[in-house]
Each structure stands twice: as structure tokens, then as C-alpha cells.
Amino acid sequence: MESYRKNFRAFLAFFTPPFVWLVLFFFVPLGIIWLYSFGETEGLTKIRLTWTLENYKRLLEPEIISLFWRSVWLSVISTAVCIVVSYPIAMVIATAKPKWKPWLLLVIILPFWTNLLIRTYALLNILGTRGRLNDLLHWLWSAGDRALSLIGLGDYHLLGERFMPVKFLGEPVGVMIGLVYVYLPFAVLPIYASLERLDRSYLEASLDLGASQWRTFRQILLPLSSGGINTATVITFIPMLGSFLIPDLLGRGQVDMIANVIERQFKSGNDWPFGSALSLFLLYITFILLALQSFHAMRQRKREEARG
């Protein structure tokens, strides 16, 4: 690496275009909504900057608090499910034969390259009351019912008189299925990376010293891969919290998350200042999470250095 002073003109030639682009089309727009969040609407499209805090005060309205609360718990549960499911998946990939690894990874990554809208739409087809998932449940119900009849319990209708389709669309569970479905690949990759890097002699030592597989997993593998788990948590939680399309299509307006309300302020509600305040709030949460994550990563690196 060379100092920028040594070849200042070359430095400027490389540095200026991306810097100017980023400032003009990323930071200036963010700056504008930051200003707007202190403004008031005047008429239909005019916004006057009055440095009012009214928009931020409205974040404390019970309606908005319950919106935040719903967004957070939907994202927390979905993230947890993602992590729990992706950990074993990452374990399988990380310990597979080298010949198989790229293919197993591809299986997980490929959906991630597919259009988000199409994947959400695909789920929409599956999750309907007459969709494939309910078909599957119906089949399972019939099988269960038949099994009960076989052992002579048929008359009690333990599984109900008739199959009742489960409602997924417009319910929190449908949105959660969508969130897990879309962001699962996000969670697998960092966990896989951390398992791949791991020094396996620790596991061997633990097993050699007589610890059980479970204890080795809990006390050695899990702590050693906690960096990957943290990264996975943050990079799935952040986009989940800000997701728009999934609650929009699968929640059917019944299960709004923050982004849906933001969208309404800008598209139909026409309350740009309040929409800006909501967006900034989402942005601040993102920053805090990222800061916590990098702080944690830094501490972990230090601990590893100390360990030698």
C-alpha cells in the first residue's frame, strides 16, 4: 500500500467518482429525509422545515409502539428459527466431503439468487387455505384419521370431524414462514464460514478426554462458532426488521411491519415527515445493532489473540 500523497493525481482519479456518487445519491438523500423528519406538511406536497419534534413524538403513540413490538417479535422469532435450522445445515456442509461441499453450498445459495418477489409470490401460492401446504396437512390429517380408525379409535374423531384448513395468509405465522424462507440462506453462510475456519483439534481433544458428543457440542463447538452465530443473527435480523414485501403480500394488510407503515406515509398517506422519522428510527436501530455486532467481534478477536 502506498500513501495517497505519493501519487496524488492517481489517487484523486480513483477516489473522486465513487465518493461523489455516494455523497450525491446516498448521503444527500438520507440527509434530506433527516431534515424532513423535523418538518411539517403544508398543503399537498410542500414540506416546511420547522425543527419540530412532533414526528418523533408520534413514534410513542400506542399504535406505533405496537407496530414496533410486532415487527421486533416477528423478526426475533424468525431469526431464532433461522439460526436453529441453519446451524445443522451449516454443520453438514462444513463437514461434508470436499467433493460435495460446493454443491451443497449451491443448494442453499441458489434460492438467494432468485428474485425476492417471485419467491414471496411462490409462497403466496403455497400458503393459501386451498394451497399446497394445506393439501399436505389434509393428507397428513387423513392418514392420521385412518390410523386411528385402524386401532379402533375412529369413532372418537380425535383429530376433529373434518379437516380444517389452517389460515396462514394474513396471520403472523404466515409472515414468519415468509421471513424464514427468504432469509435462511443469509444465516447459513456465516455459520458455515465459522465452522469451516474452526480448529478441529479442540473437538478431538474434548472427545478424547471423555466428553460426550452433546457436551462437546455445547461447551466447545457452540462457543467457538459464536462469532458466526452473531454475524448470522445480525445479517438476518436487520433485513427482516425492515422487510416490506413479505408482510405486504403474506400479511395482507393484517400483519404490518415498520416498512409497510413507512410505505403508506410516502405512497398513500402523504405524510412524508412522519415517514421520514419512521425510516430514521429504523436506520438508527440498524446502526445500533451493527455497532453491537462489531464491538462483539472486536472483543472476540482480542480474546482469541490473548489465547494465542
Binding site: 455516494l22 446516498f26 444527500v28 434530506i32 429525509i33 433485513p239 425492515g242 415517514g275 436506520l283
Partner: peptide
């Protein structure tokens, strides 16, 4: 600064560009 567009929620970027 460069990695920020990767991490911030899409909705924030969409909204800010629309306003811009």
C-alpha cells in the same frame, strides 16, 4: 461509507431516493 448501502434497510434507501 461504501459498505453502508449494503447494510441499511432497503426501505430507507428507497424512501430517501424517492424524496431526493
Amino acid at each position: 461509507m461504501v459498505s453502508l448501502p449494503i447494510v441499511i434497510p432497503e426501505i430507507c434507501m428507497g424512501v430517501s431516493l424517492a424524496v431526493f
